[in-house]
Structures are given as structure tokens and as C-alpha cells.
Design a protein around this nucleic acid. Structure first.
Lengths: 193, 193, 193, 193
DNA sequence: TATGAATGAGAGTTCATTCAT
DNA sequence: AATGAATGAACTCTCATTCAT
């Protein structure tokens, strides 16, 4: 992605994008608090003040990342709302969700590993709302408490699996399929009364 | 047998203990970075400098909490190493693990919500090691990739479930049972080839 | 005949004027230091850089306001210099001064409330000079120290009165007359040896 | 005042006092906004952080100065409240007020020259309250609008006189007497119906 | 007649940590 | 067993100003 090499003159007018890219990279690695604006600016080869030309606050950079990168999740939710509550739909929800996560992997890794931070930030509610909605789509009509746990676990396992199985041996694509399989299994189980 | 630094309670010197208690309370609520020594000291009614009489650094407080509160997990691992690899054993591992988590709930909540921080701290490896060992105990002998995911999910779901189902309605004890049920189910599934 | 820098209104280029208006409004409310160019630009709906097309520096905006709004005071001084030193003249000086103040109320309020700032700025000397000259016009020939104080008080009271009696009840016009009355009284007293 | 010379080891435990002294000196000269904590710290030979050991914020330093230095004014108000409303009392109010101002001259100079700043700060209301109370003590019972202006002018003239007549020639003590004379005259006039 | 993009300097504030007492 | 006093480094953020377009 990006031209990859020379940084001084580089692109024209893509600074905003580059701020987002580098910020995402850094907070996924180090967390939000430990990533300073100085560090972001240094990596970009600009001044801290330049960041403030493009974003109003530090948190605003993160918010913009969320808005840009979680749009697919919102679309997924919108789509799901119009579908019949069949297992096929639920299966597709999981699949799509997996794809969205892989596409925005660093952001999801950040969310997974910095839940305390996310909770305190302005995006916290959004995140929780979406999770609740998604679980609701997966639930059977007469869900028992255990069924709720199953569907919740399905989502959680996808999140955690994506980022904590990195050090396990095996082809990533294969691992992804295995995770999806288990998640689907959990949702299916929830429907077998 | 004391761990070298001569700091066992010593009867009537419970400040050390109180530092740990308040620190745990605060980091579970706010995270590690956002909890300052000033805040801890203020809540205790002592000076920041007093903290340094009892602990070498801020991180040291956290480390001591880990050592004190995760001992049951280590014992569980030791115990498990001597048991036969039967489903009954595995079932008991999950049960005991659940109990240990509830007993040290704030610490586990902290670990769940601040994975990035934990990873960077000196305790990070410990945590990962223990998780790996526990998953290994749960695995069947001829585990497929999906089986690994199942056993991993079992543990993860227990963690996440304990702290994210707080706002779901229902009796806590009942919820705990449901979580355990699903976790057991996942491990069982892993053995049904 | 334009003053060199080509910046007379020129019909349909009222931005310069609007910058002055908004700046005056803001510094009268908040003071000079606490009014930023960003704020001025935002209120105008232009960029900060646009301000620099019309004025060389922040201070320059203030200077221009002074030059435009205190012209009547200069004219008053010129006029007074040609009048006989009678009480009637002095009475009229006070009256006219009051009118000038009301006409440029925000600027005078700013001067009253930000004396430290005005003193440090390039306009500081102007202000002091004018005050001295005006007091001199009001003084009797054989003025005692107390007489100087009386005439000085007359002017000061007009300034302070105009802006600090705002929260007192009563018709503004009436208050103005009362202030003028007291000022005149002070000058008269100074002449009663 | 103070030992005057060597600054490095100097006093023990008087840092708080020295912060107040230097801050007062600087804000009287330059104003509040233009006086930075860096400057204060440098003059003291300590770090900015040291200031924060003694005061919670920049504004807090100013507040502490107010509390310490305007106590005599509060006492004056308390005293006045118990006196009969005679001209002798009023005369003494003015005299005492003048003394209090001279004793805390730099602070009063700051207040006189930075009214906009004072107004916005937490001390603003205090200042206004006190002024109102003092004027009320000076007023005759059946005060006309002009009488209010006279008493108000009396106070204002004392303030302004003290700091703006600095460059006029003459013995300071003599000037002070002249100012008091005019102020008394104004209050007297207010009672001559 | 303006804007977009940036800078350098500096602001106030907070932090973990130290050390003599 | 603890305090008082301080430090150095870092933080987020704002400012007036510049300049190519």
C-alpha cells in the first residue's frame, strides 16, 4: 500500500491519510496512551502542530479511523436488518464480519487489546451498541441464557482468535476458516434448542 | 520461603496490602496508564513517596498483584499436570479456572481489558505461558486446527463472558453456570473427532 | 493621497472593515491576549491567512482600530488648543470627550480594562500623551497638586463610570449626564482656588 | 524585603512565599497572561514542576495572593459594617482603604491594569462584591444618581491615582494626601444634598 | 483576494521517580 | 514507616506567522 519508499516530498495532500495510517499502526502496536503525537509527527516528518491542522484533538484522529474503517460493519448491520432470520443469514453475518475484521485488522486488534481505553473514549458506546445488535441478529427467538452465551462467544472468539492465534503454526487462511467454523457451530448449537 | 524482598505483612503494617487493594481497584476501573501514583496515594491518605517505601516502581505494584492473585492458577496448572487426560479432568480444570477468576475478578477484568498493556509489561510472558499450558491440557491428542480453536474459545469465552455479560439481565450465579456449560461444550466438541 | 499601502476600502472590499469590527467586539469582551486570530477568522468565515492579507500583524489590527476610532479625540485636542482657557471651553471638552467615548465605546472599554496590554503595545504612548494633553487643557493656571488630581479624576471617572456603571439601575442617558455633572464639578472645584 | 541577595540555597521552606513574591512582581509588570510559569520558575531557580508542588494551577497562585493580600480590605468592610454612618466613619474608610492599597500596591496595580483578566478569573466576583459594598458604605441615605457617581468616583480615583500619577512630579506622600483630599471632597459633596 | 498546509515556539500540566530527613 | 520538596521528561494543545498557489 502507498508508494512505500520516499517520505520527504512524497504525496501532495495526503497528509491526513498518512496521519491516520501511522496512527493506526502505532496504536495497534503500543496502545493509545503510549502513542504520543510527537511520535506520530516524527514518523511523518512533520511538526506536532501539523497534526492539529488536520485533526482537532488526539482523540479525533482515533474517531476518524473508526468512522472510516467500521463503515462496513454498519453496512452489515443495515443489511442484516432487512434479511430473514434464517441460519443462512446468520452464517453470512459471521462470514462478512470476519472479512470486515481482516480488512481493518489493525483497528480491530486495537479494540481487542485496549478495551479499557475504548470504553472511556467517545467511540465506546458505538462499539458496544454494534456488538449488542450483532449478537441480537444471531440469537434464536426463544434464546436461553446459554444460547446468548453461545452467540456472544461466537463473536468474541472471532475477535480474539484473529489476533491471538497469530503465533500458532498454520496457514492464516486455514486458521480463519477454522475460526469461522467454530463460530458457526456455536450459533448453530444455539438453535438446536 | 518469603520471596526475597523481606516484605511480608509482618503483622500491623498493612499499608502494603492497602496499596495493592486500591491499585487493583483503580486499574480495573481505569486501566494502568490512566491510574497515577498520585491518585493511589491520595486515596490511601499517604504521600507518593510512601509508595516507594513499599514498592520499587509502579510496575512493581502490578507485578506483586499478579504474584499474589494468580497463585491459584499456577496451582491449578501443577495439579493438572499430574492428572490423567480425561474429560473429567478437563471439566474440572474449567470449573476451577472459573472459580479462580471469580475470586480475583478485578485482576482478570484488568487483564481482559488491557491486553496491550499487559503484553508490554514484564508479566506479559507469564500470562501467555499460562494460557498456552491451559489450552494444551484441554486439547485432545489428535487435535485438528478447529479443535485448538474450540479449546481456545472455551477459555476466551470464560474470560470475556465474566466481564462483558455484566449488563445482561439474570442471576450472576446462573450466568456463570451458563458460561461454564458452553465452555465445557466446546471442549467436548473438540473430542468428538 | 492614500496612506501608502493601497488598502483603502476601495468599494466592495469590506473584509478589512469586518476584521476590525469583529476584532473590536472580541477584544472588548475578552481582552487582547485571549482573543486569537483563529477566533477572529472563524467568526468572519475566512482563513487566518486572509487576515494577513489585510494586516501585517495581530497588533496591526489593533493599531488600525485606534487610528480610525480615536481620530475624534485628536480633533478635539486640536480644537481645544485654539480655544480660550475658559470654563466654557473646559465644559465643552468634557462634553465632547464623553460623546467620543460613547461613539467608540467598545474601544474605550478595551482601553479601560486592558491598561497593562495597552501600555506594552505601540499605541501605549499615544494614549498617555493624549491623556496628559487633555488634563492640561482642564487645569487652571495656578494648579495645586490637589487640582491636578481633580482634573485627572474628572477624566478617569468618565472612563470608569461609562463601563462600570453598566450594572447599576437607571436610564443610560441619565447616567451619562450624572457622570458629566460630577466631572464638571471636579474641574470647577479645581478653579475655585 | 527578604534577604535580598544569594538565591541558590537561600531560605529553607520559604519556596511557596517566594513563588508568590515573584509572581506578584511579574504580573504587576507584565500582566497575567504574559507571565509564564517558565519565567516564574526560572527567576526562582527551580523547575516549573516545583511550582505545581506548591500550587495546583497558575490561577491558584493568583488566588492565593488575593487571599493573603486583600484580607485587610475584608477586615475594613467588617469594621465598617459596625460603625455609625457618619462622615467621620466614611472619612476613615477612605483613609484605611488608601493605606491597604499602598501596603499591597503591586496587587492593586495589577487589578487596576488588568480588569479584563480579573473579571474572567475566579477572583472577579470577589472584587466586584467588595467594591459594591464599599461604595454602599460611602453613600448618603437619600443618594441621587449623581451621588452614587461621586462615591464611586472617589474610590476609582484613589485606585487610578495611586498608579497613574507615578510619573507626575512631587513627593509620593504628598500626592497620596492630595488624592485622599479629593476623594473625601467627593464623598462630602454627595452628602451636601 | 484569498486558501491550504505547515512551522517554531511556547503554553500549562502531569508523571514516575528521588532523596535527605 | 513515611514525608516534604523537588526534578526531568514528557504530554496535549494553541499561538502568531509564513508562503506557495
Amino acid at each position: 500500500m502507498s508508494t512505500g519508499s520516499s517520505h520527504k516530498p512524497g504525496r501532495r495532500g495526503d497528509t491526513r491519510q498518512r496521519i491516520q495510517d501511522i496512527t493506526l499502526e502505532l496504536i495497534a502496536e503500543q496502545g493509545y496512551e503510549k502513542t504520543s503525537l510527537r511520535e506520530i509527527a516524527e514518523r511523518l516528518g512533520v511538526t506536532k502542530a501539523a497534526l492539529y491542522y488536520h485533526f482537532k484533538t488526539k482523540e479525533d484522529i482515533l474517531v476518524s479511523l473508526f468512522q472510516d474503517l467500521t463503515a462496513p460493519i454498519d453496512e452489515l448491520i443495515e443489511w442484516a436488518a432487512e434479511q430473514p432470520h434464517t441460519m443462512a443469514t446468520k452464517q453470512e453475518i459471521l462470514t462478512r464480519y470476519g472479512t470486515a475484521m481482516v480488512d481493518a485488522a489493525p483497528l480491530f486488534r486495537f479494540m481487542q487489546e485496549n478495551q479499557a481505553t475504548v470504553r472511556e473514549l467517545s467511540i465506546g458506546n458505538n462499539v458496544k451498541d454494534r456488538a449488542t445488535k450483532l449478537v441480537d441478529f444471531l440469537l434464536p427467538e426463544d434464546a436461553s441464557l446459554a444460547d446468548r452465551v453461545r452467540c456472544f462467544s461466537a463473536l468474541i472468539s472471532m475477535h480474539a482468535g484473529m489476533f491471538m492465534l497469530k503465533e500458532t503454526e498454520g496457514d492464516p487462511e486455514e486458521k480463519r476458516r477454522a475460526i469461522l467454523e467454530v463460530a458457526t457451530e456455536l450459533v448453530t448449537r444455539a438453535h438446536e434448542h
